[in-house]
């Protein structure tokens, strides 16, 4: 009897300790979370996480660069020749095989993030061996679809999420 009693007492005591420790840990976590998440983008930054761009003034064969989430985005209005050269490639030969069709929404317009996938430099327009971009840092060549053709970069230039509101405007993000 006596023994049972002690045992019962210990389990009840243990329960209170465990409960308090668990609750304490939960509270500590809830206290630390605001301190951690304050470093995430604040609401004024998030409000700018999508931008609207007017593309009506871009001439054929030209490109503009817009800033989106602190990164340059290339919007290029391709000439029919450039589109042709991008579409005619046999994608099996590519380092990062992607069809031009899945990289654009309208074949005339190419929208890519202008950051070299190698180490984050900004490639230069109209340079390089494939008529697209050339990264001056370590010599990566991109074609007119922004795909990696030569050099150390592992993947094609990233396509951001965007959509056409109408023929003249796109929303990035």
């Amino acid at each position: 009897m006596d023994r049972n009693n002690i045992k019962e007492k210990t389990t009840r005591r243990d329960f209170i300790y465990t409960l308090t420790a668990t609750l304490g840990a939960v509270g500590a976590g809830a206290t630390i979370w605001p301190i951690v998440t304050q470093m995430n983008p604040d609401s004024s930054v998030k409000a700018l996480s999508s931008i609207e761009v007017d593309i009506s003034k871009i001439e054929k064969g030209k490109e503009i660069t817009v800033m989106w989430r602190g990164k340059p985005v290339f919007i290029k209005r391709r000439t029919p020749e450039e589109v042709k050269s991008a579409e005619s490639i046999n994608i099996k030969d590519l380092k990062h095989p992607e069809d031009d069709k899945i990289r654009v929404k309208k074949s005339e317009w190419l929208v890519v993030i202008g950051i070299c996938t190698h180490l984050g430099c900004v490639p230069i327009n109209g340079k390089g061996e494939y008529g697209g971009w050339f990264c001056p840092c370590h010599g990566s060549h991109y074609d007119t679809s922004g795909r990696i053709r030569k050099g150390p970069a592992p993947t094609n230039l990233e396509v951001p999420s965007y959509k056409f509101i109408d023929d003249n405007r796109i929303v990035i993000g």
């Binding site: 605001p34 998440t37 304050q38 604040d42 004024s44």
Partner: peptide, 13 residues
């Protein structure tokens, strides 16, 4: 004021 309004939990901190 930005801390109080925009920063995540800025008001609390």
């Amino acid at each position: 004021e930005k801390i109080m309004r925009d920063v995540n939990f800025g008001w609390l901190i």
